[in-house]
């Protein structure tokens, strides 16, 4: 799952070519993903992992790093 998301970010969204992407790496502050990229990432996550991400879940704490995204997705999956 994490490799899949990392790949999508590397191939489709990243502003610069990335060799590797750490689980704890800051996706939002360091310039890896911009605002447009974030919108694309969220719709990708919704489609790929069959979840709906409502407005109240669109907060920094859920998307800061790959680890945060993973935790958020598993919580969402549990709820459904």
């Amino acid at each position: 799952m994490i490799a899949k998301i990392a790949n999508y970010i590397k191939q489709e969204i990243a502003n610069e070519p990335l060799d590797n992407l750490g689980e704890q790496e800051d996706l939002l502050g360091s310039g890896i993903i911009d605002s447009m990229g974030m919108i694309r990432l969220i719709s990708y996550l919704e489609q790929e992992f069959q979840v709906t991400i409502p407005a109240e879940d669109m907060v920094v704490e859920n998307f800061m790093t790959l680890a945060h995204i993973l935790e958020f997705l598993s919580k969402k999956k549990g709820e459904q």
Binding site: D26, S35, M38, V60, M64
Partner: peptide
């Protein structure tokens, strides 16, 4: 205001 908050309006409001 950090870069991250500018991408998430709800976080920005908070």
């Amino acid at each position: 205001i950090p870069d991250a908050h500018l991408k998430f309006p709800a976080s920005l409001s908070a």
